[in-house]
Every structure is written in structure tokens, then in C-alpha cells.
């Protein structure tokens, strides 16, 4: 960010006085994605308004500043001032964030985002994972469903032997526990893979049915509200610390829980639209009933246990954070 010093010490701090910044904001989504148009752009607009145009920003969409896997680094090193992407693109760096990927916490991204942000505020260990940057808000996409190319998946039995696209390493284990074979691939490759039978199904949220045109290549969606994918939006710490008190307070006020919920709600809206598109195009929705869900939950218990053990072994509060996530989800739903 280019900065021009502007010494001021007036009695009443004026929002138009102070250093000027042109923030570079990087994310991996396409530039027409609602996370850019309805979250990042309004955020920058409010920053600009709150500083009389002193703080502006340029958004670099679709990885133009670096690969998805480089995005956390971009903010750590200050190549980008703000970086927004999926935690899972940098495996190993954020072990505790994975807790939100366990199925059935909630049906909405707004609530999922609130859970992950409150966990962030409560657990110093979760803050430690992001400590190389200054997190502005954390959030989640809406929960994944199972999008199936041609086979209706009504019971746990139906999952046996299917090749299912997995969004993350933890989801690999979840898919295996459900009896299917996980196949890791980026979202951009899923359409072709479904169309050609390279995979039978994909674990992906409703919004993808519209945003990635998956409605064209699937016949069924099994609705179970499975894994939620966590996202971060973080700022370079040197930059954050160089801000004036006024600017920092302004940013703090615009971000945090409020923004987490807004980003989640934005995903929920996209999910609703995806669900509608799918239904209009004749995709059949299969709702899992309580009895079935209980079976799926049961199948997942060993994965949860394994994850908790793994965390505890690494000296992290796996049990505590999982329990608290369950508690928060009960509180919110």
C-alpha cells in the first residue's frame, strides 16, 4: 500500500485526516461472485466513506495475485493487504478450524459463520492458528449436500462404493466413513467429472448447482446439511498496526461477528438460489429423515473421535472446541 504521511494533531480527530491507503484485496472467487459484490465491495465502500476517501481498495479476483494455496501467504507477507479464501487451501496450518467441517451443526451459513467466529473469540489456540495475520472475520459457506449424477442416494447403504468429490482432507475421512471413495479435486473440475462419470457424486453446497451449472449434470441432491467449508478474511498485521486509532476502530467496527454473519447470509442467499435453480431444472431433492440422519451421524462418530484424539495428541483442545461447537449449534438452532 502506498502511504503519504500527513502529520495532524487537531483537537477533534477528523476522519479525513491521516495517512492514505490503497488496499489490495485478493480472493480466489470469480469477480462476479456475491462474496465480492455483496461483501467485499460494500466493505471497501464503507471504509472509503468512513475516511472521506482516504482508504480505498482494489479487489484482485480469481487468483490474479497468486494461487489459492498462496492466499494466506499473501496476507502474511503483505503482498496483499487483505486476503480472503478457504482455510483448506493451506493444509496443516489451521487444524482447529476444521471442527466446523463436521456435519449437522446447522443448516445455515449465517449460523455456521457465527459459530466459527465465536469459537475464534473464545479459543486462544484458534487465534494462534491465524496469528501471522490479523483476522477481520471468519465465515463458512452454506453446508454441503450430496449432488449425485444419476444415482438416487436415499440411505447410507446407497453411498457404498460411490466415487465422491471431496472438498478437504477432513471431508476425505468423512466420505470414507460413509462407505464411499473420496476423490479430491478443485470445484472447477467437478462439472466435467460429474458429466463423464469420473465421479458419481460431489459433496458441495446448493449454491454450486447454480454458480457452477451443476444442475445440468446431476439428477439428484441428497439434502443432509453435511460439511461446511470455513473461509478467512485476514489483514496483513504490519499494515493493521500502522493504522491510526481512528482507522483501526473503524475497521474493527465494520468487521468481526457482524461481517461474519453477513458473509454467511450472502452464501445462504446463493444457496437458496442454487436450490431453486436445481428444482426448476428438474433435479430431485431427497430429504433424509430423522432415522436416516441418526445412522449417518453414527457412522461419523469414529471420525470425530479420531480427529479429537489427533488434536489432543498435538496439544490442542480438540474435545473442548468440539463440545463448544455442539453447544453453540444447539444455542443457535
Amino acid at each position: 500500500s502506498d502511504t503519504t504521511a500527513d502529520e495532524t494533531n487537531s483537537e477533534e480527530p477528523n476522519q479525513s485526516e491521516g495517512e492514505t491507503y490503497n488496499l489490495s484485496v485478493s480472493h480466489h472467487l470469480p469477480s462476479h461472485h456475491p462474496i465480492q459484490t455483496e461483501v467485499l465491495e460494500p466493505f471497501l465502500a464503507e471504509l472509503e466513506a468512513g475516511t472521506d476517501g482516504r482508504i480505498t481498495g482494489d479487489i484482485y479476483a480469481a487468483n490474479s495475485l497468486g494461487d489459492p494455496s498462496a492466499h494466506y501467504e499473501l496476507a502474511v507477507t503483505g503482498v496483499a493487504d487483505i486476503s480472503l479464501t478457504v482455510h483448506g487451501f493451506t493444509p496443516g496450518v489451521f487444524p482447529l478450524v476444521q471442527v466446523i467441517e463436521f456435519p449437522f451443526f446447522t443448516k445455515s451459513a449465517e449460523k455456521g459463520s457465527e459459530i466459527i467466529w465465536r469459537l475464534y473469540e473464545e479459543f486462544p489456540e484458534l487465534q494462534e492458528e491465524h496469528a501471522d495475520t490479523t483476522p477481520l472475520w471468519l465465515f463458512t459457506a452454506e453446508p454441503a449436500q450430496i449432488l449425485s449424477a444419476s444415482k438416487p442416494i436415499k440411505t447410507l447403504e446407497d453411498m457404498k462404493g460411490l466415487r465422491v468429490r471431496s472438498p478437504s482432507p477432513l471431508a476425505n475421512k468423512i466420505i470414507e466413513a460413509l462407505g464411499a471413495t473420496p476423490v479430491s479435486m478443485p470445484m472447477g473440475d467437478v462439472y466435467e467429472a460429474l458429466a463423464r462419470g469420473t465421479i458419481d457424486a460431489a459433496m458441495a453446497p446448493f449454491s454450486t448447482a447454480h454458480d457452477y451449472n451443476f444442475h445440468e449434470v446431476i439428477d439428484y441432491i441428497t439434502v443432509g446439511y453435511f460439511s461446511m467449508t470455513p473461509f478467512f478474511s485476514v489483514m496483513n498485521t504490519d499494515l493493521y498496526e500502522s493504522l491510526s486509532d481512528h482507522d483501526r476502530e473503524l475497521i474493527d467496527g465494520l468487521t468481526g461477528l457482524k461481517m461474519a454473519q453477513h458473509a454467511g447470509a450472502t452464501f445462504d442467499k446463493a444457496g437458496e438460489r442454487g436450490k431453486q435453480t436445481a428444482q426448476e431444472k428438474g433435479v430431485e431433492l431427497i430429504e433424509l429423515d430423522e432415522d436416516q440422519l441418526a445412522l449417518w451421524q453414527e457412522a461419523l462418530e469414529p471420525v470425530i473421535e479420531e480427529w479429537i484424539n489427533e488434536m489432543e495428541h498435538a496439544g490442542l483442545p480438540g474435545q473442548a472446541i468440539y463440545d463448544r461447537a455442539v453447544e453453540l449449534s444447539e444455542e443457535l438452532n
Binding site: 500500500s1 497468486g66 498462496a70 501467504e73 507477507t77 503483505g78 503482498v79
Partner: peptide, 17 residues
């Protein structure tokens, strides 16, 4: 355009990425 630190860091990650 930006600063030398950023440029060096790009060199250390993008070449590998």
C-alpha cells in the same frame, strides 16, 4: 509499484508455486 519487501516475497513464493 509496491515495495521491495513484497517484490522479494513474490519471488520466493510464486516461482515455486
Amino acid at each position: 509499484i509496491r515495495n521491495i519487501e513484497s517484490a522479494l516475497k513474490v519471488l520466493g513464493t510464486s516461482t515455486f508455486n
